[in-house]
Design a binder for these strands. Structure first.
Lengths: 203, 203
DNA sequence: GCATCGACTGAAACGTGTTCCTATTATGCA
DNA sequence: TGCATAATAGGAACACGTTTCAGTCGATGC
């Protein structure tokens, strides 16, 4: 019995993958404005109506693509151990890695970030998936990798992860909107992490 | 000699005010989607082309309206002293007041917040004005009102104000997008302020 | 008073997100 | 295999943000 969680036939899964791939390609090339629904449909070899059957709006489409990208990044992260001794160092390491890859793809970052920020309540399922991936990433970095059993995060850890995630998104918006440079993003995150994760207690 | 900083003739200033008033009215009634450029022009008794002469896009228009609302709120705040003994209490007091008024106008909040978050680099002057108002509000609350000379904020104070502002915007987005309730917004802010402004030192 | 110049009006037109409709194709079932 | 149903293709149509333009109005200088 196949334990696949993916719904639909193989052809449908392939259409969905093609659509998301086309979305990321167009976003990488020209940012939010270049992700035009007709262009996505064309590049994915799918009719416009079919695109709307799979994703009910441009925002749903882009936020879903963001969730998929974060999921991939998380899976890649989890294959490597985090060696740094303190939670602060580990969190900063992870954040710096992500920031570096965002800097390499500014148009893609702009497209995905603006879609996430513009999403309304109808896309809350998709935005929640994105937030869940961010928390997964941060909580893993905060957890002590030396501990044997991966314990449940404490309430304070969750709160700190939430705040760091908020700061991350806010600074990302500042970068995308031209109010801060990529270097500023890194600095802001370091400041926030420094304020929130004092190295004294490895909380 | 008039030291007016407002540019343009009286008629132009009046048109500009009518446009922003119409924007806030429509936003209060139906949120972001109800702020349609033709509707704004009609209600402000102005031609569509004139509206675009004053504000080059819907986002510019809404973010400018947000800056004006925040400016008004700040002016009102500054007429009352902040009596609470600690910076933490004063900041939470101010944030709670704002949150309460946002809760009373959910459609307006949705419209202004989404516009701010969706703004691209071409509106960075307008978004910067909004950020400046938020920082002004937070730094005033963090400052010790008992001190005689209103001293310049320290670097750490600025950093903390920045982080709190980031968290505020991020939680606002969560509320607007239906991922959190208004009560959650208050709680998140309390947690963040608690983490960032320990009552021990009145920093 | 009159000419000039910039701002405003009213309306048409365009681009892109979104919806809708019909013909065609794929899929599962008797 | 043949049929019923759903999914897809192709494309027209609509809504709203945005642009453009010809004509009108009002202030300013002569």
């Amino acid at each position: 019995m196949p334990a696949e969680s993916e719904p639909g036939t193989a052809a449908q899964q392939d259409r969905r993958r093609r659509i998301l791939d086309a979305t990321v390609e167009l976003a990488s090339e020209g940012g939010f404005d270049a992700v035009q629904m007709r262009a996505v449909a064309d590049r994915a070899s799918v009719a416009l109506g079919t695109l709307y059957r799979y994703f009910p709006s441009k925002v749903h489409l882009l936020v879903t693509a963001l969730a998929r990208e974060l999921e991939r990044a998380n899976d890649a992260f989890e294959r490597k151990p985090l060696a740094a001794p303190t939670a602060q160092d580990r969190v900063l390491h992870v954040l710096n890695r992500i920031t570096r890859s965002l800097r390499k793809e500014p148009s893609l970052t702009e497209a995905l970030t603006r879609a996430f920020m513009f999403a309304d309540a109808s896309a809350s399922a998709e935005t929640r998936a994105v937030v869940a991936q961010v928390h997964r990433m941060l909580l893993r970095a905060m957890r002590d990798p030396a501990a044997e059993a991966p314990s449940e995060p404490t309430g304070e850890q969750r709160a700190v992860a939430q705040v760091i995630g908020d700061v991350w998104l806010a600074t990302l918006v500042q970068w995308v909107t031209g109010r801060a440079t990529a270097a500023d993003v890194g600095r802001s995150l370091e400041v926030a992490v420094g304020l929130l994760l004092r190295p004294s207690a490895d909380r």
